[in-house]
Amino acid sequence: MPPRGRASRKGHRMSAVAAAGPADAGVPGGTPSDLVLEARDLTLRFGGVTSLDGVSLRQRRGEILAVIGPNGAGKTSLFNCFTGAYRPQQGSVTFWRTSRRPARIVGRSPHAITHLGIARTFQNIRLFPALSALENVQIGTEVRQRYGSLSAVLGLPGARRQERAGVSRAFELLDLVGLSRRAHDLASSLSHGEQRRLEIARALGTGPRLLLLDEPAAGTNPAEKRALEALIRRIAGGGVSVLLIEHDMRLVMSVATTVVVLNFGRVIAHGTPAQVQRDPAVVEAYLGVETGVDAGGEVR
């Protein structure tokens, strides 16, 4: 992780500048925004290496936005800035849980961002391997629960009710991703594709308005990819915006409404899948790294 401390002051100053920007930045009490996420001028450096170089992007509510780009283009760094794992040296990220309630993301801790309504999955699946599939999702659903240790110890009715609600919500989500029959199996005993879907269910458990998927199709077979495509559509149809990093171009082109192309930490193209595909800058960026575009199963 880059140093959190030193860059922080700068980050705040920059976000203050951004807040004074155009009206559509969604200042509290202003006009409702149709955006769910807006990043402005994000810059992230590790020592001398610049991972993100003034990246700006916008995502409209309900949209499925795909971020593509060659390996090392800064896609996962971008995700990590959105989820609080990294703190950019410059720039701001604004998230609208509802159209009238914008919130600044930079500077918040990852769990606080999850509470706001951004959930994520990981490129190299990070489940709780020794817990059951159900428990994995439960931990997600319990984020919104309020009961504390004392009511848990005393077994107060409120705690029990919430507990039951969490379980049934977790079952619904397992059903959604097609894992209800494996609810009581250990997460580590699931197949790779099942683990990817379980991670999505766990993320959905936290009740997000925006779901970040980091290469959800990596390492899955064609049938699983088709199922994944349907699942992403269902999630977006349910009112959760989806931000997607993916190497599998077939999936991206069929599921995404908008595509942003990153290269060397900069946005080089942005538009509908068809527009981006024709963009000469994109073609050039991918020349020589063409294998990176085709290899669906590639990780990292």
């Binding site: 990070r126 931990i139 984020v143």
Partner: peptide, 15 residues
């Protein structure tokens, strides 16, 4: 349990 098994994932799951 989540923290014990994977702290980063726990944090990302809102713990």
């Amino acid at each position: 349990a989540a923290i014990r098994e994977d702290e980063i994932a726990a944090e990302a799951t809102g713990v």
